[in-house]
Design a protein around this nucleic acid. Sequence first.
DNA 1: TCAATAGTGTCTGTTAGACATTATGGA
DNA 2: TCCATAATGTCTAACAGACACTATTGA
Lengths: 227, 227
Amino acid sequence: MGERAPSPRRASAARIQVSADLVAVTLHARELVMLLQRSAGRGRGRWVLPSETLGERASPDTIAARAARNLLGAGPVHLEQVGAFTDGRHPADAGLSVGYLAITPERGASLVGGTLAWFPASDVPQLPIRQMAIVRAALTALRRRLDDSPVAFQLLPATFTLTELQHVYEVLLGHPLHKASFRRALQAADLVAPIDEWRTEGRGRPAQLFRYAGKSGNSPRRGVRFP
Amino acid sequence: MGERAPSPRRASAARIQVSADLVAVTLHARELVMLLQRSAGRGRGRWVLPSETLGERASPDTIAARAARNLLGAGPVHLEQVGAFTDGRHPADAGLSVGYLAITPERGASLVGGTLAWFPASDVPQLPIRQMAIVRAALTALRRRLDDSPVAFQLLPATFTLTELQHVYEVLLGHPLHKASFRRALQAADLVAPIDEWRTEGRGRPAQLFRYAGKSGNSPRRGVRFP
DNA sequence: TCAATAGTGTCTGTTAGACATTATGGA
DNA sequence: TCCATAATGTCTAACAGACACTATTGA
């Protein structure tokens, strides 16, 4: 081993075209939805992930952030890279695509029109192969980050009820949670703070509103788990 | 929102040079060590991550796998992408670098010579800025995967003692574990199986050897944690 | 015999999950 | 009043962490 070390520099290296592809998610009607766009080029009319190709000196992070602002407006957006992809075809024929997950809170009346539309994340139309892989990676990243990053709060408005918060967790985890345990865990982690406001929804007792209370000292987690 | 959607196709897109950079780790003397290489080009003599630049149609995954084989020999290697990086300078002047984590079991007498050397992961020499970021991402990925993927076993030979396994976890987690709890958790998860072999190491009772027993049904994990 | 390491049994405090109960509004 | 939802209290089984103890080897 160690005999044929690859050279860190190579005389004439190929140059390839790179794209930044965006998996933008938010909540709608208690469901996770994803923003897609109708392809304008070849394969006209197919649904694709919004993407941009990179200029000479721009970083994909910058391009993705700009695209997210264009698509989602001025609101808060959490942006995170989910990997580089080369397999399969890309709608803009990029040789390499960097995938991004963009998380933004539910926004009331902003159902987009024209070439953009939101689809349930659980029922996305057929996308180009490479973009399907990007979507899978983004949703995996979303779920993996759930318990060491305030992902759920990035999907909710600034104030919310605990039931809404629990629904977000259930949507992301894909299974129901126990109400009392959920609230105990929240309290123990100092993740939310109540505000002096209540909201009535149909019948039943009004729910108190809460806000995200930052992340206290982290990981007082007990024990060794092998799930 | 949704008025200025970015076009999925652009007439003349820039082409940039892409590299695959490898963070290869293994164990040595109960420490996590990382493979570095002396730069041959500009900045001659500096330590850098082994990397290769991509050809026209090759995927970085393929290139990284080939580089890992060249560097580490025929043994088992777990390879995982840890992201795409553009900030900072790259030794081969790549515009974009895809980082990879390569995990391989401790190998006895294979301390490399020449331009390659293993460094403790906790004490890596100064690398080019972009490669420092890749190293950070790789080590973060390593630790994050620890409890939902058999990372620890990829660092150990096929058979090992439970004390060795515990040491691996302690190295990766960065804190000591409770022996009895560790073993109970292992047993509960059916992660290891004993084999009919024992190993004596200095004084003391010989330790039974174990092998990785695949991953049984996953996630019987209890509860909701907010660490 | 002593020292050192492997491996196990028991106890205890914590907590996830279940269940029941109270609180508070609308129909 | 009944019903629906919010919020909380109590019990229990599971389990992490601590400790002590036995087992088995080399010095």
